[in-house]
């Protein structure tokens, strides 16, 4: 019997495909998310919009909050550790969290190295803005990738940019003659063997979700069309007027993303969406997507 294998780690992500992973901060919110059909929840102390508003250093959530949420729902529970903070990650692993998000939403703890994720039994998901970043994370042991987008903004434009960037680079990599692949790897800052795995499969070797700014069923459906395997919704649900209804609508939109008649029905009467932020109004130093290396 073997545990903590890459197949088990990437396998759980495969099971989450076509689903919606929702940020929750209380057991009550976790119940609403589960009842709406979330395939997993992300247990947090504050959603990204509130982290952004609060400023200061954002850290791993209090284990009590995470534990209460784990005790409340039967679906997988994820939690965030700071970039590079392997002790926060070990604590979450010891608690039995199902997936760890090494996340730029929290303040990075190491300005040079991400966590060496290969050494853990628990699987990790990491954010990316381009293919090189995705492949570096996979080489470090990430079993799932998501776009960074710009968390807590309710503005999907950065998630779209990052998704298109990754897909575009995958197409380029797959079209290259063999002789030019090592140089592509060098310029992307990605290990050659992971580049070769992408060429073999024609896609990332792990599941890729959209994250960072998804606020409506249409946003979620667009990310599926762009080639994402599922979506994370952070602030978009519990910062909206009617979280239960919006959550359920986004779940349905991810399943039926190709059916526009159905999407029209799903998108009706959802109440107020979260108030969005124009990315150009966020000073460069305060953009969460710039965190990570």
């Amino acid at each position: 019997m073997e545990q903590g294998t890459i197949r088990l780690k990437t396998g759980l992500a495969e099971m989450l495909k076509g689903g919606v992973i929702m940020d929750v901060t209380t057991p009550e919110q976790a119940k609403i998310a589960e009842a709406a059909g979330a395939c997993a929840v992300m247990a947090l102390e504050r959603v990204p919009a509130d982290i952004r508003a609060a400023g200061g250093v954002a850290r791993m959530a209090d284990p009590t909050i995470v534990k209460k949420i784990m005790d409340t729902v039967s679906i997988p529970v994820m939690a965030k550790a700071r970039i590079g903070h392997f002790v926060e990650a070990r604590i979450l692993e010891a608690m039995g969290v199902d997936y760890i998000d090494e996340s730029e939403v929290l303040t990075p703890a190491d300005d040079k190295y991400h966590i060496d994720k290969r050494d853990f039994t628990v699987p990790f998901v990491c954010g990316c803005r381009n293919l090189g970043e995705a492949l570096r994370r996979i080489a470090e042991g990430a079993a799932m990738i998501r776009t960074k987008g710009e968390p807590g903004t309710g503005n999907v434009v950065e998630a779209v940019r990052h998704c298109r960037q990754v897909m575009d680079e995958i197409r380029q990599l797959c079209a290259l003659p063999d002789a030019e692949v090592p140089n592509f790897a060098k310029e992307a800052g990605a290990p050659l063997e992971v580049c070769l795995a992408v060429r073999k499969e024609g896609r990332l070797p792990v599941v890729n979700f959209a994250a960072g700014g998804i606020a409506t069923p249409a946003d979620a459906a667009m990310m599926m069309h762009l080639g994402c395997d599922g979506v994370f919704v952070g602030s978009g649900i519990f910062k909206s007027g009617d979280p239960a209804k919006r959550a359920k609508a986004i779940v349905q939109a991810v399943t039926h993303y190709k059916d526009y008649t159905m999407l029209a029905e799903i998108s009706r009467d959802l109440g107020e969406a979260m108030v969005g932020i124009d990315i150009s109004t966020i000073p460069a130093g305060e953009r969460m997507q710039e965190r990570g290396w």
């Binding site: 019997m1 073997e2 545990q3 903590g4 294998t5 197949r7 088990l8 396998g11 759980l12 099971m15 784990m70 997988p76 692993e93 039995g96 969290v97 199902d98 997936y99 039994t121 628990v122 699987p123």
Partner: peptide, 28 residues
């Protein structure tokens, strides 16, 4: 079997498929 950290792979005997065991992946 528990949570994700308890997920496992094993060789499983399934006589209806023959003598060779199946490589069985158990995830939550």
């Amino acid at each position: 079997f528990g949570r994700q950290v308890d997920s496992f792979e094993t060789e499983l005997s399934m006589p209806v498929l023959g003598v060779e065991p199946v490589s069985a992946v158990f995830i939550r």
